[in-house]
């Protein structure tokens, strides 16, 4: 029969319409603007309308989510900025579109390069959000941000000041990763300390042997 397909199609939409309201009733007003409601709407059991009412409610971003990179700094005793970045340049080498520019700071006295960046530029309008810089930074310094609300009225180029964010922020957005990394750092430090201690002990032993 002609027209059957049409009616069937309309039926599908109607059912969805009804599903939405039935689900609304089932959730008794908690379907929207609550974390559970949102999780329900993006689960396998979602039925009916599943729109996320951005900006009033936002989909939680998963830990691994990556947008543009930022630099993590540790906070000193009285809040001063302790750069994790040593200006080693690895991130600028791995960056596929080559959008990281790093200037290594010079020691004001000796004019020798020191392990600190004096300028760090990321051209966000080139960055492809690939996350390779974060993956290969040996000092857990450059990381991928979760903040995606960065639309603006001009081109976006991030300089050192825009890039720096405290470690506490990083711990907050990526708890699993940061705990793992902190543990790894601690281990490495301990290993280093142990090695050093062993070496010193050896040297002491040798010195002792010599004097004998």
């Amino acid at each position: 029969m002609y027209g059957k397909g049409l009616l069937k199609g309309l039926g599908v939409t109607l059912k969805r319409f009804a599903d939405t309201y039935l689900d609304d009733i089932k959730w008794m007003g908690k379907r929207y603007y609550t974390a559970e409601g949102l999780a329900h709407r993006s689960s396998k059991d979602a039925k009916g309308i599943f729109t996320v009412q951005y900006p009033e409610e936002k989909l939680p971003v998963p830990e691994e989510f990556r947008y543009v990179p930022f630099l993590v700094y540790d906070e000193g005793e009285d809040g001063e900025i302790l750069n994790r970045c040593t200006a080693c340049g690895i991130c600028s080498k791995v960056c596929p579109p080559q959008c990281i520019w790093i200037e290594r700071a010079l020691d004001p006295k000796t004019q020798r390069p020191i392990q600190e960046p004096s300028q760090f530029i990321i051209d966000v309008d080139i960055c492809m959000n690939c996350g390779l810089c974060a993956e290969f930074c040996p000092f857990d310094s450059i990381k991928m941000d979760h903040d995606y609300e960065i639309a603006s009225y001009g081109r976006t180029v991030h300089h050192l000041d825009d890039l720096l964010k405290p470690a506490s922020y990083y711990d907050e957005i990526r708890p699993v990763n940061s705990t793992r990394e902190a543990a790894a750092r601690k281990e490495a430090e301990e290993a280093k300390a142990a090695k050093k201690a062993a070496r010193e002990a050896k040297a002491a032993a040798r010195a002792a042997a010599k004097t004998d």
Binding site: V52, Y54, D125, Y148, E149, I150, A151, S152
Partner: peptide
């Protein structure tokens, strides 16, 4: 008029823009 960074901007980022 408006620049939205990201590659690609997620839908929420687009709406933000």
């Amino acid at each position: 008029d408006v620049y939205i960074p990201g590659c690609p901007p997620t839908p929420q980022a687009l709406i933000n823009g």
